[in-house]
Design a protein around this nucleic acid. Sequence first.
DNA 1: GAAACGTGGCA
DNA 2: TTGCCAAGTTT
Length: 345
Amino acid sequence: MALIYYAESIKAQADAPTVPDAARPEVAPESVPEAAALAALHNALATWFAVNARDLPWRAAECTPWGVLVSEIMLQQTPVVRVLPVWEEWLRRWPEPSALAREPAGEAVRAWGRLGYPRRALRLHAAAVAIGADHGGEVPGTYPELLQLPGVGSYTAAAVAAFAFGRRETVVDTNIRRVHARLFSGAALPSPALTAAEMRLAANALPDGAGPSVRWNASVMELGALVCTARSPKCGQCPVSGSCAWLAAGEPPPTYTPKGQSWHGTDRQVRGAVMAVLRVAESPVARELFQRAPADLGFEPAGIGIPLAALHRLDSAPEQLERALSGLLSDGLAELHPAGFRLPA
DNA sequence: GAAACGTGGCA
DNA sequence: TTGCCAAGTTT
């Protein structure tokens, strides 16, 4: 499968600068290497990427911008291996934005399956509707246009403009942040929140020219995913370990401890369990079914079964269930039908 | 700027 | 087993 990043004819060649000169600080806390050393890094990673890049379907030359957009939304906070089968099914079922826009939003949520953060499915559906209304059914190709779409933030807008349209953009995701932190800044991990200094650093590291910049963005991201990983990085396999500030500094430990996301016993867990029920339910689910164990009902609710039992094993307090249900309603992930709760129709 | 938002695999 | 972590966005 040919990767788009090697194609001679990148779809667009826009070279808009991503950071205005006025935004640059007098002194950057960390900076990229001088031009010759930076060019050597560009070449080293391009060579490494040509050999080691994963053969992902959204990187294929024949993948449409819509396919890239769907992949980028699905990949937000979600590992590649879990996205792959769902992405294939979505693109088979909805090969273009208009196909998805014609469906009820609830179908998008149902097809989202267990990818997590189901509001992404809702927003992707809304994005498909907006693409039909504002862009003639074609995924827009510029950063500001993409940024207007629901569920598309600064990372996704830059990624789609770069990887689907071949534009020179400052793409900064968690992988790129980590590689930059180690390679340029000598830190084990990036700061908890993305800073303006990081964006300047990333913009300064970008090679000139659309094609090289796309290749650089993709290869740094891939290096972070495969080699320069958060835990136990494989520095022995790293093509730029000789230039790594973190290695040169003796691999200092992180200067902060990330706060873990709590899960057990949270409203979030209850929301997830309720959504698991609604996704498999064949008809609206009465509130009573959420509150009483299936065994106590004296019958097996049609087409629900195991997810409902899982919900009851949580044994959440009534007010917690209530918070979850009302939250899902206000988020548009569920709606209240006379017969009970269901996915949005 | 902090907090909320799913899910499952791995150490 | 518990906690970390994964191609972030929104409020």
